[in-house]
Write a protein that binds this DNA or RNA. Structure first.
Lengths: 166, 166
DNA sequence: CCAAATTAGTTGCAAATGATACTAATTTCC
DNA sequence: GGAAATTAGTATCATTTGCAACTAATTTGG
């Protein structure tokens, strides 16, 4: 058996709303599966949450950054970044120096330990990505990336206008 | 200014791990933006959480289902389904009858009020989806759906093997 | 046929998350 | 030059979530 489920007898057919075909739902399912997979791996092998990992990933470039810059680079909330930095700092994976230009802000960078963690995880992260995309052609990967990007842009645009509605 | 960020001077270049180009990250960002947008709308207009909405959506077919069947149809955890059903039941949007075949299980269906909610939201949900995908050709929509599906399948396969590793 | 194992669904508790408020430093602009 | 507004980051509190334990019903298999 396969295909669409028939509507209950005597009930009007509602055109087209079937959860399994609803894009925001499918996107959420795919994202949760992919993230969950990788998050479990970070957690099990390195004791890092997905947010801590994201912070490490952007600091892996070697540039010191403010928490604010990290927020932008990781699409994380400032509270989430603050908590991730506290945890990373307690484990001595990052260090924070008060910015000389702005004494409210700190410049955060990886410690040697943090850099070592980054260098150990980064190749694994790429390997997980590769496994996830096994069977995708280069073109398919590019198209997927592009479509996700356009979707994000659309969502941003719609979010702009949403509180102006009736 | 645009383009890739240069590595810090004197630092080895780690090939290819740039968060903004990392697929699981991009997927998560796109999904969160899309879901957040729609979740806020459900919440603001109908007082439904995204999980309550998902349950309503699958029950909208008119078929009575067990909580277990709802779990499968919505990709939700049984605890989450249980809580969503309790909330919907308190608002008299669903009703539960003990299954005659299995007295542990209930058969859940929408009440007339629940059906009315479904019929009011379903077209809006489709409209939000349409807005989100504005500018996407039919083929692009199809490709996106197909790629997400393949990604989910891959993630399931990888999740199978993950606790067999060293 | 009955003890052991499994399944449906709920509950309780601990951890994660999000919104808000707060402190301290900086910028704006009159 | 300084009061008012803004920004960086943290802390607090309420809600949400996830896990594990639990009850009750059913299935298995000896």
């Amino acid at each position: 058996m396969s295909g669409r489920v028939a509507p209950a007898p005597g009930r009007a057919v509602m055109p087209g709303l079937e959860l399994a075909r609803y894009l925001p739902y499918r996107l959420s399912v795919a994202s949760n599966k992919a993230s969950g997979l990788i998050a479990r791996a970070y957690q099990a092998r390195f004791g890092l949450t997905i947010w801590e990992w994201r912070v490490v990933a952007v600091l892996g470039s070697g540039h010191a950054m403010t928490a604010q810059a990290i927020c932008e680079a990781t699409a994380m909330d400032k509270v989430t970044v603050s908590r991730a930095l506290r945890a990373l700092n307690e484990r001595s994976l990052v260090r924070r120096r008060t910015s000389p230009q702005d004494k409210r802000a700190s410049l955060v960078s990886l410690t040697p330990d943090g850099q070592a963690v980054y260098e150990e995880i980064a190749p694994l992260a790429l390997e997980w990505e590769r496994s996830l995309l096994e069977g995708f052609s280069d073109e398919e990967k590019a198209v997927l990336g592009e479509l996700l990007e356009r979707l994000s842009v659309r969502a941003d645009i719609l979010a702009q206008g949403e509180d102006e509605l009736p």
